[in-house]
């Protein structure tokens, strides 16, 4: 379980996250939505300890995040940030194998290879294993990064806008994969996402953030609501049911 109490973060004088209290349910797919600058990415970065919080505490499995050992944390929780780009010339396989570092320290065992192959298969990267990551398209690279996080095999997976750069096919495939991981492998997944319809269709719970605060959180059908969303984004948003699924319309 992840629990946040009174969590705040300032950059200079600007409060990015202020006094967030939140419990994230295990074994669920939780989507964080909200306008730009709401503090979504900062919240994720604090939960994964990449950015220190100014005040407040984070508890991971009832233990303060500060007291987790770096390597144990890397086996428990992983984060994929948006725009993780670097210019190393390594292959897709080598990249995904790095996901096993917390376990293998570079000496991969049979289990490690299995996990790597599984991650590569799930993300449809089997044909690209020996490709240089510098030659991949944006979407292929994004899938390779997700495979890296998958290979890390953590209970908690945090993804910051994982659908960036993907076409519809892979957007749907990634979301289905995430659902599969939650349902079949018991993972807890928290994603920052901008596409409301993906959140509406795939998330169990939604956290809506605005101006560094929790605007509203709860079960998906409670948040995917015309009044809530219109107020959150400050534009009129209509919701229509098509074949039993809610769709948000905000183009006019």
């Amino acid at each position: 379980m992840i629990k946040l109490t009174d969590l705040s973060k300032k950059y200079g004088v600007k409060k990015v996250v202020s006094k967030v209290n939140l419990s994230l349910t295990t074994n669920k797919l939780t989507a964080i939505i909200g306008p730009n600058g709401a503090g979504k990415s900062t919240l994720l970065a604090m939960i994964s300890r990449l950015v220190p919080s100014d005040t407040g505490e984070i508890f991971l499995d009832h233990q303060s995040l500060k007291t987790w050992k770096q390597n144990s944390l890397a086996k428990k929780l992983s984060l994929l940030k948006q725009a993780s780009s670097f210019e190393l010339k390594i292959t897709v396989k080598e990249l995904v194998e790095f996901g096993r570092f917390p376990y293998s320290k570079g000496h991969l065992t049979e289990v490690d290879h299995q996990k790597v192959n599984q991650a590569l298969a799930i993300l449809g990267l089997k044909d690209l294993v020996n490709e240089d990551i510098s030659t991949l398209s944006g979407g292929q690279l994004q899938r390779a990064y997700i495979a890296l996080v998958l290979a890390q095999d953590t209970d908690y997976i945090l993804l910051d806008e994982p659908l960036n750069n993907l076409d519809m096919k892979y957007e749907v495939q990634i979301m289905k994969t995430l659902r599969y991981l939650v349902k079949e492998l018991g993972k807890t997944i928290i994603i920052v996402i901008h596409d409301l319809n993906f959140a509406a269709s795939y998330a169990d719970e939604i956290i809506a953030m605005k101006n560094g605060k929790i605007f509203k959180s709860g079960l998906t059908n409670k948040i995917i609501d015309e009044k809530v969303l219109s107020k959150l984004y400050e534009i009129p948003i209509q919701i229509q049911n098509i074949s039993g699924k809610p769709f948000c319309l905000y183009f006019n």
Binding site: S48, A74, P102, V149
Partner: peptide
């Protein structure tokens, strides 16, 4: 090699 991928990925993999 891991450090060459940047601070975020390195930390995420549990490396100081």
């Amino acid at each position: 090699t891991i450090v060459g991928m940047g601070e975020d990925i390195t930390k995420n993999l549990g490396l100081n």
